[in-house]
């Protein structure tokens, strides 16, 4: 096989589905049944009146596997549209995280200074802890959590990636 075929790529897919029972199980079952990777998956209803949900999946694989994933998703009956944002180019990706840090003294002040630099908000505070809310690309959150580790990182909750294309057109 030529080298280009074997290269592992990371792609972000947007999937518009009918919000009906079992639709998420169908999508997840497809990934586990066929051995595809899921790096991140988010899902929520986006239109109550038309019962549509939007699933954002970050996956990795060779270009051939990524094409398969797209086509296999598209073939599921309740799926309206699949968009490979990575292929289609300009798009925005964001993730939200809540980061709990415990500490006192200099470590506590340092955590607060870093949070400010990362534009993280304090959404809960006690005398010995903070919960920060931070939004951004996944690597920014990774970096923030990494910096908090020596300052008393307790736990992190992340939403997973949501993504949308730039410009006026819709999925």
């Amino acid at each position: 096989m030529p080298e280009a075929q074997e290269r592992i790529e990371r792609h972000t897919l947007s999937v518009l589905v009918d919000n009906e029972p079992g639709v998420l199980a169908r999508v997840i079952g497809l990934f586990s049944g066929r051995g595809y990777n899921i790096d991140s998956l988010t899902v929520s209803e986006v239109s109550a009146e038309s019962h549509l949900s939007r699933i954002t999946i970050v996956t990795t694989g060779t270009p051939m596997v990524i094409e398969q994933i797209r086509n296999q998703l598209d073939r599921l009956v309740p799926v309206h549209r699949v968009q490979d944002l990575t292929v289609e180019g300009h798009y925005l990706e964001r993730e939200l995280a809540m980061v709990k840090v415990r500490g006192t003294g200099e470590a506590r002040s340092e955590a607060l200074r870093l949070a400010e630099a990362f534009r993280a908000r304090v959404i809960d505070a006690t005398r010995e802890s903070f919960v920060f809310e931070i939004t951004g690309k996944s690597d920014k959150i990774d970096q923030f959590a990494h910096l908090m580790e020596p300052l008393g990182l307790v736990e992190v909750a992340r939403t997973g990636v949501v993504a949308i294309s730039r410009g006026p057109t819709a999925l």
């Binding site: 075929q5 051939m64 094409e67 398969q68 086509n71 296999q72 598209d74 073939r75």
Partner: peptide
């Protein structure tokens, strides 16, 4: 008729 059959095993 099934797009997912295309390029699955053979390019």
């Amino acid at each position: 008729i099934d797009p997912s059959s295309i390029n699955k095993n053979v390019k």
